[in-house]
């Protein structure tokens, strides 16, 4: 299965970035082969609608699942309308999150969180 994980670094050992729209990196992983590639999130610097832009990236990548932390209302709408499932990978590395997802141990995010959650400085 192809999935996109928001990450604070560029490889599978990086922590899952709990921000969605303004996450640092997107890691696209094939969960069967564990092959992955990494893209910088171009929405980080958008003045508005970062969540929508990031969601468009996930939709265009044809992933079946997204692992992240907080998804705001607009981004949620875009991802939900594309039939992509969203999972909470907060506190895990990308690799752990994928293993957990395969074992059915990740919680599905079924409703949007507050808007602009990722605007806070870490």
């Amino acid at each position: 299965m192809k999935m996109v994980v928001t990450a604070e670094g560029r490889d599978l050992d990086a922590p899952v970035d709990p921000r969605f729209g303004r996450c640092e990196w997107f890691i696209s992983v094939n969960s069967d082969s564990m092959e992955f590639d990494c893209s910088a999130n171009s929405a980080v610097n958008s003045s508005q609608g970062a969540g929508i832009q990031a969601a468009q990236f996930v939709v265009d990548s044809q992933a079946e699942a997204l692992v992240t932390g907080h998804v705001g209302p607009n981004a949620f709408q875009v991802i939900d309308a594309s039939g992509i499932k969203i999972y909470d990978g907060t506190g895990l590395t990308v690799k752990q999150a994928i293993e957990h997802l395969k074992n059915g141990r990740l919680t599905e995010i079924v409703q949007a969180g507050p808007a602009h959650a990722g605007m806070k400085r870490k």
Binding site: Q48, Q53, A81
Partner: peptide, 23 residues
């Protein structure tokens, strides 16, 4: 349209176009 909108007011989902007119 979604690709060119620099304000992210449009998004192309699998089957439908979504608009966020406030943006």
């Amino acid at each position: 349209c979604a690709k060119w909108c620099q304000f992210n007011a449009l998004a192309q989902t699998k089957n439908t176009l979504l608009s966020f007119l406030q943006l």
